[in-house]
């Protein structure tokens, strides 16, 4: 199927992009990698008058170290995220989760910023971003602001990005030496996550000294499993303690029910998968 007609611009700087967005009004839409956006246009579920393609802005691409943070440009592709040495060393969880996104072709085009701005509750990158306490860099006409991940995801497909604003970068704290696992559960390889768990833990001589856990598709936004995190910290690493701590995984969640899963099943999966994710991360 073919999208409805739209105008198209491909700015080369963030300032140009912001200007185009402001000028374009509410029917202007930002396109990042286009891997969710173009199918939506093809199904004619979206009908923008202007598409602003961020693909021509070099400053939005790439991974760099900035003090105690790793900064990922919003237009860095999933493929690049999975291959990046800095991320592998300091933010393994985001790289692990990104490996499970869609398929090779989609990962060649799709971007971290695009996925986070899309904020699909079943998308795989929001939960690790939340778990990792990332900061999201948003630029508008009034300049740049940084939003903690905990404040960024507001609801289904809704983020803190305001009108006339663009997500330009994601800043991750360093988790050097932490183990990481993204435990994804779906019906077939191509399907979206029914539930997934993003876990990264620090283990020191057999004791869990720190843990970060985020849940995918357990609410309209990603959810932090803080009860599990606190139950884990200070525990000696064993299957028993991890599974016991994981029993709190569904606290504070509000999963939906659909044909693939009832809410009770999602809560159950959250507990099981949290246990598995933490064990694998610590392993």
């Amino acid at each position: 199927m073919i999208p409805a007609s739209f105008d198209y611009v491909r700015p080369t700087t963030v300032d140009e992009a912001v200007q185009a967005l402001v000028d374009g009004g509410e029917d202007a839409k930002i396109m990042a990698g286009g891997q969710s956006f173009i199918p939506v246009l093809r199904l004619r579920m979206g009908d923008p008058s202007l598409v602003i393609d961020l693909g021509g802005i070099p400053e939005l691409r790439g991974v760099r170290e900035d003090g105690d943070q790793i900064v990922v440009g919003a237009m860095t592709t999933h493929h690049e995220v999975t291959r990046d040495d800095l991320l592998a060393r300091h933010v393994a969880l985001i790289a692990e989760a990104t490996k499970t996104v869609a398929d090779f072709q989609v990962r060649h085009r799709g971007t971290l910023g695009g996925a986070l701005a899309h904020a699909d509750p079943a998308g795989d990158l929001a939960a690790p971003t939340l778990a990792l306490d990332a900061e999201l860099v948003i630029v508008g006409q009034n300049g740049e602001r940084r939003v903690p991940a905990a404040d960024f995801f507001e609801d289904y497909f809704t983020t803190a990005i305001g009108p006339g604003e663009i997500l330009t970068a994601i800043r991750f704290p360093k988790y050097t030496g932490w183990g990481a696992r993204y435990e994804k559960f779906n019906r077939v390889a191509q399907a979206w996550s029914i539930v997934a768990v993003a876990a990264t833990v620090k283990v020191d001589s057999g004791t869990i000294t720190d843990a970060r856990i985020g849940l995918t598709n357990m609410a309209g936004t990603p959810v932090r499993a803080r009860a599990v995190e606190s139950a884990l910290v200070g525990q000696s690493m064993s299957e028993e303690t991890v599974r016991a701590a994981a029993q709190a995984a569904a606290e504070g969640t509000s999963p939906t029910s659909d044909a693939d899963a009832g809410s009770d099943y999602r809560e159950h999966l959250a507990r099981v998968l949290t246990g598995r994710a933490v064990l694998a991360a610590a392993g």
Partner: peptide, 16 residues
């Protein structure tokens, strides 16, 4: 029809 796209009508891929 709820399974009106290949997102919802889940064919197996090689990985399945």
């Amino acid at each position: 029809l709820l399974s009106g796209t290949l997102v919802d009508y889940t064919l197996p891929s090689a990985a399945d």
